[in-house]
Simulated scan of single mutants.
Amino acid sequence: MARTATARVLLRSGVDEKTGEVVTARVVAERVGWVADLVAGMATGLLAEYWNVDDVARLASGVDDAGRVLPSNAWMALRRLGWGVTAPEGVRVNDRIVRMAQEQAGRILRGAHHRAEMVAGILATWPADPDRRTLTEWDAVREAIPDARSLPSSVIKARTRQITAFLNENARLPVDVFDLEDPPNAARMLVLAAVDRQQATLERADDDPARALLRLQLPVRPDPRSYADWTWVACPITLPPTVPPDAVLHLPTLRPTTGPRGDRTHADLAFSHPVPKTQRKGHTTALGVDWGLNTLLSAGAVHRQDDGRITALGAGRCSGPVG
């Protein structure tokens, strides 16, 4: 079976294919940042326009007005619904840049549906004392929220505190989550999974499976006025050892950042590779994970020896029955 994972890599340099000039990591981050600003601006505009209960429910329904199933890709689903967006006046971008904006906005709007259902359930069963629900009130709120039986109580409590703060400030309960929260701003990133070869390509090097080449179109100015202001930049990537040599590489998500080390571009690189199908029994190694009080997670791995003993990997030995 196939497993998909993600590795974070750094774009250290590039080559402008039009001029042949070497592009430094700082310039690559600057150009990626220009595109990310354009995409984030368009995505934020989409979020502001469709941040309401009716449109989010329409997208979450999974079908369009004609009853056809919406595509799984968020940008395609938004286009099926007629939710378009254009670049700022005077700026020239190709359709793939618009796709990335629609993809990012669509993912956020799809995720908002669960929050909308949760807030609606809490409002419909608003307790007499928001700081201390009775057992009956806990049962009522879990019945009102879809699939809430497995929802941690802390999540419901956090939303209740958020609604209480709104109530104290506005002297009324919010109508829904879209009244409770302002439209979010889109992050500065490029979801290259939404584009095709006319915007970006990624290929592994023939002579070295630990290296790959990312080619993408980037502007030479923050406000490109024509297609001539866009050029192909080839960025070599060194793959970490966690990426198997036979893994299939997928276009990454680029995140330009600014820090003490200067402007940088990180790439969240997804890859798929075959792994043995997981069996329900017969395992000899187990990993136990638990929530910690002072740390987020506490974990430990153990291995069952041939004689039945259990060895704690890297932390001595412990004996006991195998569960």
Rank of each mutant, 00 (worst) to 15 (best):
S150C: 07
S298E: 14
I156G: 01
D223K: 13
A116I: 00
A101T: 06
T258E: 14
A301C: 13
P240K: 03
W138C: 02
P276E: 11
E203P: 00
V9A: 09
D207W: 04
L59V: 02
V28I: 15
M100I: 03
A193L: 07
D306N: 02
R12N: 09
A29W: 09
L190M: 01
L249G: 06
T86F: 00
G62P: 06
R31H: 14
Q217K: 15
P236A: 03
R96V: 00
G259A: 11
V23L: 08
E21D: 14
R317S: 14
M1F: 08
R221Q: 12
L216W: 05
W126V: 06
P174N: 03
V53T: 12
Q305R: 14
K18N: 05
E49F: 04
T253I: 07
S150Y: 05
P224N: 05
G67N: 03
L192C: 09
V141F: 04
T24N: 08
A165Q: 15
V85S: 04
L239N: 05
G20V: 00
G45K: 05
F166W: 10
G106Y: 02
M1Y: 10
G262K: 04
M1D: 07
S61N: 07
H283A: 10
D182E: 15
L287A: 08
R255A: 11
D182P: 11
P127Q: 02
G121W: 04
L167W: 14
A205C: 10
A40V: 04
S298T: 13
G288N: 02
S150T: 13
A148Y: 01
A116H: 15
E117F: 00
T6F: 12
A234I: 01
R264G: 14
P260Y: 05
W51I: 06
L239R: 06
V98E: 05
R172S: 04
A267K: 06
T134Y: 10
L293R: 12
G316M: 01
D37W: 09
R264E: 15
A193Q: 12
D206Q: 06
A66K: 07
A267V: 10
M118P: 00
V289L: 13
G45Q: 09
A29Q: 08
A210Y: 03
R12A: 15
P88E: 07
W51K: 08
P256F: 05
W51F: 09
P241S: 10
A148F: 06
N185W: 13
N170I: 02
L239F: 05
T125A: 07
L313M: 08
D176C: 09
R8V: 15
L135Q: 15
H283I: 00
N294D: 12
W83P: 01
R79P: 01
I156E: 06
R221M: 10
T284Y: 01
